[in-house]
């Protein structure tokens, strides 16, 4: 921030209290964060307690929007969304950790590594909708899979649960959120000095024990980051549920969007507030889960060695 103020440096020096650049950039950041993020969020929460009357809005606080939401099956929607996001996050972790370990420590071939990096970024080249919609032609009633199954006579009529089902939604999420889990874990494993692995081996630990006692704890910052950046954006994702689940698998964020689409801003706000609440609860849960290993600070302090 300080650097941008050079034009009227002298004047500004006299006007502004002499504070170190760090304080200015911090306060600058705070202003942006507060104005750009906190205020809109607070506004959403505020609006969710309002009541609509025709096209006017009544500002007497009420839980009406929440009652509406829950009375129209909102509880199921909530449970389903969290269940799917948690399941996918768990599956991603199970796949991504060994993959990241291989990429960081096992893969000695630089060409293979480079190609893998590229492959991991490819999904970001396409729009989210485009990369999801492709699966329709694979899993649809007349899709590739069904054609094949019919062709070899494995089924008599097309399998319907391949698309617009929870299976399809899971599948859609799995591909879309793989890189977000792999990257942070890959980075944190890359940072583990080979000396530690050799020392562990030298002291009598086999590969499994080295994984449990040395690699995993030292990769924990990456695992935490991976979980956060997979679970939370997935809860906010509107594309996969809509295109892969259709009306059979409704999820929170897609529902917020469709409510906005029909100008039902108040229930949408209530729904968004619920999503916010879940994300907050998730952070608290994560914080609590890291308590036994010394808390978030301690986990990240291990990066400094």
């Amino acid at each position: 921030m300080a650097a941008t103020l050079t034009a009227n440096d002298d004047v500004l020096r006299r006007l502004l209290p002499r504070l170190p650049a760090g304080v200015w950039s911090l306060s600058g950041f705070s202003v942006v964060w507060f104005g750009g993020i906190v205020i809109p969020l607070l506004a959403i929460i505020l609006v969710s307690f309002f009541q609509g009357r025709g096209i006017r809005i009544n500002i007497d606080p009420t839980f009406l929007q929440y009652e509406r939401f829950f009375s129209y099956g909102g509880g199921d929607l909530l449970a389903r969304s969290v269940r799917i996001a948690a399941t996918i996050t768990f599956i991603e972790l199970m796949i991504a950790f060994p993959f990241a370990l291989w990429l960081a420590k096992g893969c000695k071939n630089n060409m293979v590594r480079l190609l893998t990096f590229t492959a991991l970024t490819v999904p970001f080249f396409l729009s989210p909708a485009a990369r999801v919609i492709v699966w329709r032609s694979v899993f649809g009633i007349n899709g590739v899979v069904n054609q094949a199954l019919l062709g070899i006579g494995a089924v008599d009529e097309p399998v319907t649960w391949l698309i617009f089902s929870e299976f399809a939604v899971h599948f859609g999420f799995l591909g879309a959120f793989f890189p977000t889990m792999v990257w942070p874990i890959f980075l944190s494993i890359s940072l583990i000095d080979n000396d530690f692995l050799e020392a562990s081996n030298d002291l009598g630990a086999n590969r499994f024990r080295t994984l449990v006692h040395v690699i995993f704890p030292l990769a924990l910052p990456g695992v935490v980051a991976g979980i956060v950046f997979t679970f939370i954006p997935m809860l906010g994702d509107t594309v996969v549920a809509q295109h892969m689940g259709g009306n059979n698998v409704l999820m929170l964020s897609a529902q917020v969007q469709s409510l906005i689409g029909v100008s039902n801003f108040l229930v949408a706000a209530a729904l968004a507030a619920v999503v916010l609440g879940i994300m907050l609860a998730f952070q608290v849960l994560l914080w609590a889960a890291l308590k036994p290993v010394g808390g978030l600070n301690e986990v990240f302090a291990n990066l400094r060695r």
Partner: peptide, 26 residues
């Protein structure tokens, strides 16, 4: 067993846990 040039003490463990490591994995 080896004493490494840069010690290779596990940063996420206490001194005691480091020393005990060889016994723990056994």
């Amino acid at each position: 067993t080896t004493v490494f040039q840069h010690y290779a003490l596990f940063p996420h463990m206490s001194v005691g846990q480091n020393v005990e490591y060889g016994l723990r994995v056994r």
